[in-house]
Amino acid sequence: MTKELIIAIVAIGLLIAVFFVSYILNKKTPIPKECEELKIDASKCAACQNMACTLRKKEEK
């Protein structure tokens, strides 16, 4: 267990933590009064398979 390996494992663990935390925080922050504009893109959302899109969740609701 060299020193560099430990630093690297900690760094990757930190990255995973940053990812999860930023994802959760992003889901929690509300969209600033732009909810109207989302409806226009509803037809596009059907073709796009990106599941991480916050707009898609809104449309499913």
Binding site: I16, F19, F20, Y23, I24, K27, M51, A52
Partner: peptide, 10 residues
């Protein structure tokens, strides 16, 4: 279900 997508990506 809150953190589904990040888990799938990993």
């Amino acid at each position: 279900s809150q953190i589904k997508i990040p888990c799938y990506i990993v």
